[in-house]
């Protein structure tokens, strides 16, 4: 496959395309950003601390969880929990890394810095479709990054109680958008089976595991299951 030979730095046009690809996701980011800002004020953070956390951490589910334990837990526990919740990014990193081989070294920390679930999903889909590049990835990262800290700050300054986003189905923005992205990876029966197994494992996992462990566990087990399926298929053909 020679992934590294396809590694592209990309142009400003690619950057813009990556940025535009995140636009459908922005309403979802803003709704949760506002909610985060309001919640941060409730646990006693100032608007500037609220903003600073989003600027330098930029990880929604970890930030919400940290706020939930802000008063009761110590710094060490909060940092370790953040680490655990974000471990799923190891899998995302492994998945994009081969596309970055052969690029100047400085791209790697730059792209890792703001890689979110959303910008990963958009960028890996672009790579799959052959239109991906480092500039596209950066554009997708920047798109989400423009919305998350700003909406958190606005939420903190408003400070009012917001209606539950789930009432208006706004928490479905990410799963619905990700469905459209997922289809790019369903190439055959094996990838379809892997997606179904991952979904089932994640549902079971989310009931019995805390934080975001279910994403990492389901993603890891189901993707390894894909290799198993290939081996089973090979043995079947040999018979």
């Amino acid at each position: 496959m020679g992934l590294s030979k396809q590694a592209r730095q990309g142009t400003f046009t690619d950057f813009r395309r990556g940025l535009i690809a995140t636009v459908p996701l922005i309403p979802g980011v803003v709704v949760f950003g506002l909610l985060y800002g309001v919640m941060a004020r409730q646990v006693g953070l100032s608007p500037w601390e609220t903003w600073a956390m989003s600027l330098v951490v930029h990880a929604g589910s970890a930030q919400f969880t940290a706020l939930g334990m802000w008063a009761s837990a110590g710094t060490g526990a909060i940092v370790l929990t953040t680490l655990a919740i974000n471990l799923r990014h190891l899998l995302m990193g492994a998945s994009v890394a081969p596309h970055l081989l052969g690029l100047p070294q400085r791209w790697r920390p730059l792209l890792a810095l703001w890689m979110s679930d959303e910008s990963y999903a958009v960028s890996i889909t672009a790579y799959r479709q052959g239109i991906g590049s480092a500039a596209y990835f950066l554009g997708a990262n920047v798109g989400i990054y423009l919305a998350w800290p700003a909406s958190g700050l606005v939420g903190a300054l408003l400070g009012t109680v917001l209606p539950d986003p789930a009432r208006y189905g706004l928490d479905l923005v990410f799963p619905l958008a990700f469905l459209g992205l997922l289809m790019a990876f369903i190439e055959d029966r094996k990838t379809a089976a892997v997606a179904v197994v991952a979904g089932l494992l994640a549902i079971v996992g989310s009931r019995i595991l805390s934080g975001q462990w279910h994403v990492l566990v389901a993603g890891l087990l189901a993707s390894l299951g894909g290799i198993l399926l290939e081996e089973v298929e090979r043995m079947w053909r040999r018979r």
Partner: peptide, 12 residues
């Protein structure tokens, strides 16, 4: 298989 597995795990 990683993107399909990860996206499905985020969605379901």
């Amino acid at each position: 298989y990683v993107p399909a597995a990860l996206l499905a795990a985020l969605i379901a």
